[in-house]
Design a protein around this nucleic acid. Structure first.
Length: 276
DNA sequence: ATGACATGATAAA
DNA sequence: TTATCCTGTCATA
């Protein structure tokens, strides 16, 4: 599940459940033990996200940086009064817990992250400096991404996944934004028009905000919808199945080690003007 | 029980 | 490009 919307949602949940509270921090699995000890008993100030990076702020310029990678999770749970926090099950890299201060008892277990580390302020700066603009952050400037895209011969499908060009987009949002803009994934970045990029950015921002709100990715417009419940996509992982718009079988191919999905009728191959 | 696979990223070749 | 890390889930045997 972890694309940018997941991290933003997690940041909001952590801040709501733990913001301003003293938390217990531990690493039942042991791999974050020493660092957990340094924040144990401290006040969790706030959690925030940039692209797929989560940064949790503690006093004294201590920052816990988490990257969920492909399959990391961190469910945040609040418990009714009187219910005990259960013992950790399985591989828990980091458990945060708060209770006994008049607010609801809460805990969060981090499993399977690519990164879970304690950083200093300058280290966080370096991390953020490496990231492109995140469509979920209001201060983000889409032009920074555009300057990279318009100068690059790399396929737009690769550029969208490059976190230094644009932060927070993963395989699902990539497939879906390309479909919604009828764009072939292999089209070179330098053949896009600025207006096309602007439209894609605006659409991404909206789709990702929906993702934050609902907790899942849904990109299908009402007129194409086939499922009553949410969480429908046009092409992601629908290879071989009929396109929701034209009925042609959705195609798949591996690009840079990641599965690409598109409809060859709705997203025709790009031909440059020079080639006719 | 075993293996394939996954919404990610990095280092090495 | 390939290998590797992190973990859980689902399909197959």
């Amino acid at each position: 599940m972890p694309e940018g919307h997941t991290l933003r949602r997690l940041a909001l949940e952590l801040t709501a459940a733990f913001g301003g509270r003293q938390v217990r921090a531990a690493s039942p699995q042991g791999r974050f033990e020493d660092s957990a000890a340094l924040i144990d008993g401290q006040t969790l100030e706030l959690a925030d996200s940039w692209g797929k990076h989560l940064v949790v702020t503690f006093p004294g310029e201590r920052f816990v940086h988490v990257h969920l990678g492909l399959y990391g999770t961190m469910p945040v749970l609040e418990l009714p009064d009187g219910v005990e926090i259960p013992a950790p099950v399985g591989q828990v890299r980091l458990r945060l817990a708060a209770s006994g201060d008049g607010r609801p008892t809460a805990y969060a277990d981090l499993r399977g992250p690519t990164a879970c580390e304690l950083l200093t302020a300058p280290q966080v700066e370096v991390l953020l400096a490496r990231s492109g603009p995140d469509p979920l952050r209001p201060e983000s400037d889409p032009d920074l991404a555009w300057q990279r895209i318009r100068r690059s011969r790399a396929p737009i499908g690769a550029l969208l996944m490059d976190q230094s060009v644009l932060a927070g987009v993963g395989n699902v949002y990539r497939a879906e934004i390309l479909f919604r803009h009828r764009m072939h994934p292999l089209r070179p970045g330098n053949t896009l028009r600025s207006r096309q990029w602007q439209a894609m950015w605006d659409d991404l921002a909206e789709l990702m905000q929906d993702g934050v709100r609902h907790g899942w990715i849904d990109t299908v417009r009402p007129e194409h919808r086939t499922k009553a419940s949410g969480g429908e996509v046009y092409v992601y992982r629908r290879h071989g199945q009929p396109c929701l718009v034209c009925g042609r079988a959705v195609r798949t191919e591996v690009l840079a080690g990641r599965n690409l999905f598109w409809c060859s009728r709705c997203q025709p191959a790009f031909r440059s003007r020079a080639l006719g």
